[in-house]
């Protein structure tokens, strides 16, 4: 699994940044996502959507990445919203209780709408 590619696609929707993640997110690929998120936070981009539409697998280490910056972005009025999860990926988030900590939404539009509120 670790050999399988993991890629991140950057998109900008106004002041909102969207990271479209693809492939397998595990202990080996998690640092990539962590640095991508870290760069955004450092640049002061605190409204972030992570789009899961093409993510096939997430491991426990992958889940931990979202915890690293969530406090920082929320302190400045931003948020990390998680969008378009496949059912299998959602189950993993759900068991861990993530829906109680993060906003997990249908798609980017829903996330943008939530940011607008």
């Amino acid at each position: 699994m670790s050999e399988t590619k993991f890629t991140i696609e950057h998109q900008s929707i106004g002041e909102i940044k969207c990271l479209k993640i693809q492939g397998y997110l595990d202990a080996h690929t998690a640092p990539q996502l962590e640095s991508a998120l870290g760069n955004l936070v450092e640049e002061g981009k605190h409204k972030i959507i992570v789009n899961f539409s093409e993510l096939d697998y997430i491991s426990s280490a992958g889940l931990g990445v979202f915890m690293v910056y969530i406090e920082d972005v929320r302190e400045t009025g931003g948020d990390i919203k998680l969008a378009e999860m496949k059912p299998k990926v959602f189950t993993v988030f759900d068991l861990l209780g993530f829906p109680m900590l993060f906003e997990i939404v249908e798609n980017n539009q829903a996330a943008i709408a939530k940011f607008a509120n």
Partner: peptide, 10 residues
């Protein structure tokens, strides 16, 4: 607060 942010235990 005593373990790394990205680490958790189920």
């Amino acid at each position: 607060g005593n373990i790394e942010k990205q680490t958790y235990i189920t």
